[in-house]
């Protein structure tokens, strides 16, 4: 009886003493902390692609005509990838790899449900079934269907062109890495990014992991360095290293264009 009374007294003292019960507060804070920690970045890995707009040529300039005595291998091909609503057209301003009238490559739209894929970027629905590696309706809810093309074929032909002109055992001048990406006004950003990805570096086969390709550079530090290849930043000195289309960039210097003036 006395023990019970004593315990009741202590409890009463605690209540009257105004001591807060912090357990619910701690529960809430801990839960919030876990939630916020889990939501940060959500494991998104980011990368980046470089680009720029072409400068306007001064009136009367003849679009950087090469000098007559220039080595034909060093004349830039001026490859152009034109993206329309229904197809991709690969041609060259130099006319050495097709013209707009007679292009080197024409790729129609693909990425329909049931087509093979190795990522959502290859499907109009944005969904590549991870088990079957085929495009299908997006289980996360139907999104706006964006045009998809055979980027691997574009990549294969660009690699073939680079191999034809800059191998074997040739140094590839820096300005030959430039290509123009011309697109219809309505072309969505995702399609542009995929086309740029296909233009920049050799793509792995479906299902194979991609390896970061080496980019050409005329960086002063690299050109003066003993080793012409910077493995950490994946750069190489074009004046000292022979071009290798398996490891090096294809046409990484991409200029955006809306057409000709």
């Amino acid at each position: 009886m006395a023990v019970k009374r004593r315990e009741a007294l202590i409890e009463q003292e605690e209540i009257e003493g105004g001591e807060l019960n912090l357990i619910p507060y701690l529960d809430i804070v801990t839960n919030l902390m876990l939630f916020l920690l889990a939501s940060i970045s959500a494991g998104i890995l980011l990368g980046q692609l470089n680009t720029m707009l072409p400068d306007k040529a001064p009136a009367g300039a003849s679009a950087n005509e090469p000098k007559p005595d220039t080595n034909p291998d060093e004349i830039p091909l001026k490859m152009v990838v034109s993206v329309t609503k229904e197809q991709i057209i690969l041609w060259s301003v130099s006319q050495r790899e097709g013209t707009l009238q007679s292009p080197r490559l024409v790729l129609p739209r693909i990425g329909l449900d049931g087509n093979r894929c190795d990522g959502g970027y290859m499907c109009e629905s944005g969904w590549c079934d991870p088990g079957k590696a085929v495009c299908g309706p997006n289980p996360e809810g139907e999104q706006r269907r964006l045009p998809v093309f055979d980027y691997r074929e574009l990549n294969r032909v660009l690699k073939e062109i680079a191999t034809k002109y800059y191998t074997p055992s040739k140094k590839r001048p820096l300005d030959t890495y430039q290509a123009v990406l011309m697109a219809d006004d309505s072309t969505p950003y995702e399609t542009l990014i995929s086309v740029m990805g296909a233009m920049r570096c050799p793509m792995p086969e479906i299902g194979e992991a991609s390896e970061r390709c080496y980019l050409p550079s005329n960086d002063e530090i690299l050109t003066k360095a003993e080793n012409p290849v910077d493995d950490f930043n994946r750069l190489y000195d074009t004046t000292r290293v022979d071009y290798d289309p398996e490891k090096h960039a294809l046409f990484n210097d991409i200029l955006f264009s809306r057409g000709f003036e």
Partner: peptide, 23 residues
């Protein structure tokens, strides 16, 4: 890129794609 602003290089940020392999 206009002269007043003067940006010369643009980096387009993308989400890194991890290739899917068929089971």
């Amino acid at each position: 890129k206009e002269k007043e602003a003067g940006y010369k290089r643009f980096r387009l940020i993308v989400q890194k794609h991890e290739p899917i392999t068929a089971a």
